[in-house]
């Protein structure tokens, strides 16, 4: 019991300044149930038990959203979680259906920002990469990448910028082409006989595939061919494949 009180006291400061930070003077967001009823759950997932339901005509105040769930309060002060899909069928004070963004395939085609994490192989060594991208038009985007390659002989860090062209933005599974430049830092393992640190400019071209899954995320897989511009007489070439999960906004 004292532990619970202590922990609750820990969150008290958070609760007090949260109001100041977000502003308490915002108008309440209220909706009216027009379906025969909506069910309330104790938590934001279908796994949590249903403990209450609101019937047609009741007004609910929208408090906060977690993924596909909305926390609501009724006029008696009860609080619980209702699916966003059910809230989207309620009406607000204007008598119109509530305008909530439910991310779908259309939102995917209209996305402006995307970011993700991909993993795969760079010349046989594991690579971990993260990126962020901005779409200028539905067909053309610019991206910034950071990658780490951890081979048995060296550690490689790479920063790349590239443009992406996708010819069919409205397809659920949409192919794309990329072209870009970057910089590579190669740090050989200390145990090697002649460790030689290098950093070089790279150019790369690639092709890949995005597959929209649901809500805000999609799978992305790509293959890239890198040209490493060395100061020696020959340039080096490297191939890379990776696959990962991205989100869009």
């Amino acid at each position: 019991m004292p532990i619970v009180i202590l922990l609750l006291m820990l969150c008290l400061p958070g609760m007090t300044w949260a109001g100041w930070l977000w502003g308490d003077d915002e108008p309440e967001q209220r909706v009216r149930v027009v379906e025969p009823f909506v069910v309330w759950r104790t938590g934001p997932a279908v796994g949590y038990p249903v403990f209450h339901s609101s019937e047609k005509g009741e007004w609910l105040t929208l408090l906060q959203r977690k993924t596909g769930w909305m926390k609501v309060r009724d006029k008696k002060g009860r609080e619980g979680w209702v699916a966003v899909a059910a809230i989207a069928q309620t009406q607000d004070a204007t008598g119109e259906n509530v305008n909530l963004s439910v991310p779908d395939m259309k939102a995917f085609s209209d996305r402006k920002f995307e970011a993700g994490i991909l993993m795969g192989e760079f010349e046989g060594s594991p690579v971990t990469a993260g990126y962020g991208g901005y779409w200028f038009t539905p067909n053309l985007a610019a991206e910034l990448w950071g990658s780490q390659v951890l081979g048995s002989a060296s550690e490689i860090l790479m920063v790349n910028a590239n443009i992406v062209h996708q010819p069919f933005p409205h397809w659920r599974v949409s192919p794309y082409f990329t072209l870009g430049v970057g910089h590579i830092w190669v740090d050989p393992k200390a145990t090697l006989a002649v460790p030689e640190e290098r950093d070089n400019t790279v150019g790369h071209a690639g092709l890949g595939l995005r597959a929209y899954i649901t809500e805000r995320y999609f799978i992305r897989a790509e293959f890239k061919d890198y040209k490493v511009f060395t100061s020696r007489s020959t340039n080096e070439e490297a191939t890379e494949w990776k696959i990962g999960l991205s989100i869009f906004f």
Binding site: R65, T94, S101
Partner: peptide, 14 residues
């Protein structure tokens, strides 16, 4: 005037 629900005012905690 009846005010429509403004989604931007709902706190999302993802």
């Amino acid at each position: 005037k009846p005010v429509p629900v403004n989604e931007a005012l709902i706190d999302t905690e993802n």
